[in-house]
Amino acid sequence: MIADTLILIFLAIGLVFNALGVIGLLRFPDVYTRLHASTKATTFGSIFLFLGVVVFAISQYLGTSDSQYLMVITHTIIAMFALAITNAAGSHAIARAAHRNGQKPQQAVVDKLAEAGL
């Protein structure tokens, strides 16, 4: 019963943050601010969706002690870490490439990187 409530809460949080990430992606003015929204919010939302799956698998494992649920738990946690690390590195790569491609940050008050001229 506690597990069910916990799963519902986790899935709801995950859905809300994923939706906010996509709304930010549609709403913000330039590529850097869009990266802010998409990277942070979808990483956080997906982590919560995965936590919902992990809680489900733990409750099933405690109920049935079927060892395939153990595999579900570890593999979901591995996917969680892979997603968190690769999202951060990927957003870093996109931001750097966008700046080298000549995208100006819109509404920006300062651009020290263009002044440094790297």
Binding site: G14, R34, V53, S91, N101
Partner: peptide, 21 residues
């Protein structure tokens, strides 16, 4: 622009991983 599209593809990939699980 092209970087905007790359950001969108990256977001879709993240969501696809979540849907698969």
């Amino acid at each position: 622009t092209v970087p905007d599209r790359v950001v969108a593809v990256d977001t879709i990939n993240t969501l696809t991983v979540a849907v698969m699980i």
